[in-house]
Computed example of a mutant assay.
Amino acid sequence: MAKNDNADLSRLPMMAMEYVPTPKADAKEIVALVKEEGRVTGYQLEDGQILDKDEAVQLAKQDGIRGVGVATRKGNEYLKSLPDENDDNNLGNLPSVTQ
């Protein structure tokens, strides 16, 4: 594999994003997943605010959430962790809360 191929592969996670925010100074961080029956239905922000999935996607598109991008699967938009070499802040590794 040529050296340039490795660089291209490292960009794949970012290329899967439909939108990569440039967070505003007051952007919030997601600290927990809201789950119902094992499915993610929303997100809890660092200030305690809970958003459903659609609200969170819209806020991310307004550069109001740090550390995530917006991706699309089967026509549905969802949040995806931005790669940053820190697994602790990946959405899948966050604690869950119930509403």
Rank of each mutant, 00 (worst) to 15 (best):
V70C: 02
K24S: 15
G64A: 09
V31S: 03
Y78W: 10
L51D: 06
R39V: 06
P21S: 04
K28S: 05
S96A: 11
P13D: 05
E29M: 12
D87G: 01
I50C: 09
G64H: 12
L94R: 02
E29W: 15
L33Y: 15
D87H: 11
N6M: 10
Y78S: 05
D87V: 05
Q49H: 10
M17G: 12
N86H: 13
A27Y: 15
M17I: 12
T72E: 07
A60I: 02
D87Q: 09
D26N: 14
V97S: 02
T22Q: 10
I50V: 14
I30M: 10
L79Y: 10
G67Y: 14
G48V: 07
K35C: 09
E55S: 14
E36F: 11
A16K: 13
G75N: 03
D54K: 13
G69T: 06
K53A: 08
Y19F: 15
G38F: 04
T22E: 08
K80E: 06
P95V: 05
A7R: 07
N90H: 07
A60L: 02
L59G: 03
G64E: 08
R11C: 09
K28L: 06
E85I: 05
L91S: 03
P83Y: 01
A56Y: 05
E36Y: 12
V57P: 03
Y43P: 03
P23M: 03
K53H: 10
N90F: 04
K3I: 03
N93E: 01
G67S: 07
Y43C: 04
L12E: 14
V97F: 05
K53M: 11
E77R: 05
L79C: 02
E46L: 07
A25W: 14
A60Q: 00
M14R: 15
T98I: 10
Q58H: 15
V97Y: 04
V34S: 06
P21Y: 03
A16E: 11
Q44D: 05
Q62E: 13
S10P: 00
N4W: 12
D63I: 13
L59M: 12
Q99D: 09
G38M: 02
T98M: 11
G48W: 14
I65R: 09
V40C: 14
Y19N: 08
Q62K: 15
Q62P: 10
G67K: 13
T41V: 15
A7N: 05
L12P: 06
K3A: 13
K35T: 15
M1E: 07
V68Y: 04
R39K: 15
T41E: 10
M15H: 14
L33E: 14
G92Y: 05
V34N: 02
D52G: 05
D63G: 03
G64C: 13
L51H: 08
V97L: 05
G92W: 07
S81G: 00
A27C: 11
D63C: 06
L33V: 06
P13G: 02
K80I: 08
V31N: 00
N76L: 08
M14N: 07
D88W: 01
K74Y: 11
T98E: 08
